[in-house]
Write a protein that binds this DNA or RNA. Structure first.
Lengths: 142, 142
DNA sequence: ATTGCTGCAAACTCTTTGCAAGTTC
DNA sequence: GAACTTGCAAAGAGTTTGCAGCAAT
């Protein structure tokens, strides 16, 4: 993504635009793999070799606070991040530990209509996220 | 739950029946709150004050390996455990950090039928888990 | 000039591990 | 008695924090 666009994302949220933040933003937008912090650090260091680990952690946390990123957890331990361009569900491949986006407006419509009829007592639904868990047949190379 | 029943669950999985394991099993079955390890330790220590932290971790991990428990992750950090008596989805209350079971066979049917028609290329679905995220209106006391 | 951000290293939290002693089957 | 489990304490991984110096607005 262009630096101009990345800059826009940051300044719209009232964040100062620094090279580190641009690099981290760029990593998330480019990778699209729901990377963990370590992968982000590796990616960023290609162009920005001396960025501090703590800075990346802080930056990612800031982005989550501002709603730019979402955290994603698997049952394996580390925190992964998701730059959510549009609403989506997640496909989890158990064997290869990949998380993929699953965009399906028809499914969203189905779910929304279902819960419009069938309410959960005293509960306001903000979001419905389906976890689709299974395995890819012919394993993608990681 | 009766000790006899807890014993049965353990021995059916080929695990040796020890007081520690019974205590941990009992905690999970009784609490039903998707507790984290710390809560399990607190609960177990009421009757079993000197159980070691490492033992609880190991025990929970063993139970997960044997399929007795499932791990549950929120976007806050710690691992929580779920004794899954029957297939269910989860309701996440953002304000009070509660995870509740949501059992709904009609929903399961709807989802299964949907994905019977609309397949995901090259992917075998093992499980569909809906995360229902939102807030309880009149906050339950924790 | 002000406010906010970065780098660094130390500290912290949660979890895992190795092993001797003890239990269960 | 063989195989497994526990307790303990130490180590490990991932993450957070405090602060002095620096950069963005």
């Amino acid at each position: 993504m262009e630096v101009v666009e990345l800059t826009k994302i940051l300044s719209e949220k009232g964040l100062k635009v620094t090279p580190q933040r641009i690099a981290v933003m760029d990593a998330l937008v480019t990778m699209r793999n729901h990377p963990n912090t370590e992968s982000v650090i590796d990616f960023v260091r290609k162009n920005h070799p001396y960025i501090a680990v703590g800075t990346v952690y802080k930056t990612l946390e800031t982005f989550v606070d501002k709603g730019i990123l979402k955290k994603v957890k698997t049952d394996n331990d580390v925190t992964r991040y998701d730059y959510e361009m549009c609403k989506h569900h997640h496909i989890y491949c158990e064997e290869c530990d990949i998380i993929e986006d699953y965009v399906d407006e028809e499914l969203d419509k189905l779910l929304n209509e279902y819960f419009k009829k069938k309410r959960i007592p005293k509960f306001d639904i903000k979001e419905l996220k389906l976890h689709i868990i299974g395995n890819y047949k012919n394993h993608k190379p990681t």
